[in-house]
Structure formats: C-alpha cells, structure tokens
C-alpha cells in the first residue's frame, strides 16, 4: 500500500469505528461519546495499521500493547477490537450490560485484547511504563501505545509516570495526548488550564510531536517518523482534537462527554459520520 492508499483505507476504517462506537453507546443508552470520537482517528491508525497484534492470539507475548489510560472512552477501543474480530461483532450490543465482556470501563480479565483494566484516570500511563520497561529488560521489540486525556493530565501520577519513562529511556513507549480541551465539568481552560502540554512533556525529556489529531495524513506520518527511532526518549504525540468530532451537534459541547444519543440524534449522528470527516 502506498501512503495515500493507506490514508484512504484508514479514513474508511475511521468511519466504521465511529459508527460502531456510536451504535454501542446508543444501544446501551450510556457511555462516553465525546472522547471516543476525539480519539477515534488515532486509535484507528493503531489497530488497522501500526500495531503488531494477533487478534486470534490476544495474549501473544510479543504483541504491541495498548493502554487506554482515559478508560471511559472504551467504546472506541471496543470498536477496534470488534472490527478486528477479537470477539464476535454482535458483542457490541452488550456494552454495559450484566455479564458482558464490554464493561463500562475496560476489564482485562474478561475482554480479549484489553491489555490492562483502566477507568480511574491518571493510572494507565504508569502501567504502560511498566510494560515498556518489561520489554526493555526482556530485550523484546514490542512497543506500548498509551492514550491519555488532556483533563487526565491534571493527575499528578501522569507526571510521575513520565519521569519514570524518561529515566528508563523508554523509547518504545508512545503516548498520544487527546488534546480536545474539554473534560467532565467544562473546558480544561476553565476547570484547570493544562497549558502547553507539548512543552511540558518536552521539558520532562520526551520526544514530542504536535499534530492535528483528526488528519489521518498527519497521524500516519508521525507514526512513520517515530517508528524506528531508538534515541532513548519516550515519544509523545499531542493531537489537537475536537471532542465529539464527526457529529456536528456533539462537537466541542461539554455535555456530550458522557451522554448517549437518543433515536433521532443517533440517526443524524450516523448519517453525518457516514459522510466522513469534512
């Protein structure tokens, strides 16, 4: 595949990803659409191109790991796992239901493909650091990808984890910061300004990249750039994103953090998403 073919393929996949995430949240009438949609493009590129995984062998020891540190947006992770056939696609209709492998926040014990249970913000990155460190110590080539929210970066533990990643030279760790400037109560600027996140990660000693987190071209290029760089520096991609991206009435609206669309809203959302990002 040429780069342009790859980008076109991933854009198509991103449409399926958004539709799947919205469908499961609508069916459950519960879940977090805003942050799922803002992380959608990056997670699509990971699961449909970048990550070295075997859905038929989800615990394969040499697989790349994925840590959804902002675990509340698991519908987008579950969409990737469903579309990559880690489990039957129809499982998506059981999201948040009793006995489902698709718990309200990711549960590694029951869901194939979930590398760590998350949901309590600020903690996932530390576990990703542990995984990346294990790879280094075991002289293995796998990488660890971690998605962190910008609101989540207000947790002190994030920066504890970053210091550890820098100290142990974890250049096999890739952190994607979903910089949508929205959190639960309001914008990050109002709740707790996160400031120049790229500059902060750089000051801690990470290799940093800033991209438009919805431009598949930029995502593909940055992943190409960092793939083989063994410079001892953890890689941080700060993606400028829009919460709710792809559904006009959800975009940049605080309320759509954790509310499910009703029937009409869902129909409109699917129709808009099917057209692809404008």
């Amino acid at each position: 595949m040429t780069r342009d073919e790859k980008v076109a393929y991933l854009k198509e996949k991103a449409i399926e990803m958004r539709k799947t995430a919205l469908t499961m949240i609508h069916t459950a009438q519960s879940g977090h659409p805003g942050g799922s949609l803002s992380a959608a493009d990056f997670v699509t590129a990971l699961y449909f191109d970048e990550m070295n995984v075997k859905p038929e062998d989800p615990k394969w020891a040499d697989r790349d790991r994925f840590v959804l540190s902002k675990g509340h947006v698991c519908p987008i992770l579950y969409s990737a796992l469903a579309l990559r056939e880690y489990f039957p696609f129809d499982t998506i209709y059981t999201l948040r239901k009793e006995g489902s492998i698709l718990q309200g926040h990711p549960d590694m014990k029951v869901c194939p493909g979930v590398d760590i249970s998350t949901g309590s913000l600020g903690q996932g990155l530390s576990t990703a650091v542990g995984m990346a460190l294990a790879a280094k110590r075991d002289k293995k080539d796998y990488r660890v990808f971690c998605v962190v929210g910008d609101g989540e970066s207000q947790e002190g533990q994030i920066w504890e984890a970053v210091m550890t990643a820098v100290k142990y030279q974890l250049d096999n760790l890739v952190i994607f910061v979903d910089n949508n400037n929205l959190q639960n109560d309001n914008t990050c600027d109002v709740v707790m300004p996160t400031g120049d996140l790229k500059g902060k990660f750089a000051a801690f000693g990470c290799e940093t990249h800033g991209i438009d987190g919805h431009k598949m071209e930029e995502i593909v290029d940055v992943l190409d750039t960092i793939r083989d760089v063994k410079n001892g520096m953890p890689k941080v991609v700060v993606g400028k994103t829009v919460k709710g991206r792809g559904v006009s009435f959800m975009e940049n609206v605080v309320m759509w953090h954790g509310v499910a669309p009703d029937k009409e809203q869902f129909a409109q959302a699917i129709a808009e998403v099917e057209g692809g990002l404008k």
């Binding site: 790991r65 590694m108 590398d115 760590i116 903690q123 996932g124 990155l125 530390s126 576990t127 990703a128 650091v129 542990g130 995984m131 990346a132 460190l133 294990a134 790879a135 075991d138 533990q157 984890a161 550890t164």
Partner: peptide
C-alpha cells in the same frame, strides 16, 4: 501502576 504493568508481562 508500574508494578501492575510489569505483572502483565
């Protein structure tokens, strides 16, 4: 958290 990550490996 680091310990948990190590444990998964």
């Amino acid at each position: 958290g680091v310990a948990a990550g190590l444990a998964t490996c």
